[in-house]
Amino acid sequence: MNFTTFLKLVRYPNLLMVLATLILTKYALVYSYLPVSVLSDFDFVLLSISILCITAGGYIINDVYDVQTDGINKPHKQLVGKSIHLETAKKTYAILTIIGVALGLYLSISKELYSYSLLFIGISLSLYIYAVFLKRTPLFGNILVALCVSFIILTLLLFERPNELPNNIIMVFQQLFTSIGISTAGLFYIIFSFLSTLIREIVKDIEDINGDHAQKMRTLPLVIGKQRANRVAVFFTVCLLVFIIFVMKMELVDYPYFLGYTLLVVFAPLLYFLYKLAIAKSTAHYHSLSSLLKLVMVLGIASMLFFTF
């Protein structure tokens, strides 16, 4: 397996998106509110490598258990079983996951935040369980993936505020109606990541319905039907739009640039996404919608930059 093939295997564009999310959370969002950062630059590098390795391992193990399905849904993109031997993929998954969890354990222990070790162990186990079992179940697998994605931001915030965020989560929700702090701002992006990922996972399941059906999987579109699954995706998209309206209303006074950016670059494309989703029919339609939503996710996370103004 050459380096180019390896990059494709670990979904390097997605990993770059994860890395960008971590960098923006650390150097835009956290630095805007906290004068002193708990994590040094070196600690941040270790945490980033840990999360990237665990995420890459999740992509690989997903491909390992999707060899037959991918052969139907996307034969031109399939790597495992073609360009990469199945056993090689399994070993690469094991190495990356071990490195990711080990770095997470080291960082947790060095900061005397021993319980945080469970985050890295739990996320790696969740990605494995999803690939082996939950991907073949309706909605639960989608929710698990969305939770894992949202945990990228949450994990960093937990390390930056070890004595506050876990113990005072009620105060975080109280701040939603009073003032904007780091905990509240972080919560916005956690919810945004969760909902947008959940919608995209449902859309991808609809896109892959033929291959999933051939493998007798029980994804949401196969259990309740393609049109009903579409309506579920529409419902969550409406929820996301309402949530963004709520956020824009809160940010109107203190962050006018954030408001304008979110309205034009995130909210408007999501409205277009909702319209196209409501009339989507073919696999090509859902593939385009998945790509559009991925772009919206990137642009949404990029709005963290406006907290520095």
Rank of each mutant, 00 (worst) to 15 (best):
I209L: 09
H287T: 10
L29P: 04
Y116V: 07
K294E: 12
L154K: 06
R11K: 14
V172Q: 06
S193L: 02
P138T: 00
Q175L: 06
Q175T: 11
S83H: 12
F3L: 15
S124K: 10
G186K: 08
F273D: 06
S37R: 04
A146L: 08
G211Y: 05
L96A: 05
T155M: 11
T55K: 07
T219I: 00
A280H: 09
I191D: 05
T137M: 13
I202M: 10
Y272L: 13
V265W: 06
Y27W: 15
Y128N: 03
T237H: 06
F309C: 05
L107W: 01
I123D: 02
T25R: 05
N73D: 12
I206G: 00
T262C: 08
K226G: 08
A102K: 05
E207T: 05
Q175V: 04
V172Y: 06
T88I: 09
V247L: 13
L125H: 05
D212W: 03
D205F: 03
P138H: 00
M217H: 09
D43W: 01
S32D: 05
A131E: 02
L119W: 08
L240H: 11
F188A: 02
A89W: 06
G260V: 08
S291M: 12
G100W: 01
V45A: 14
G71Y: 00
V67Y: 04
F177W: 14
F44S: 03
S193F: 00
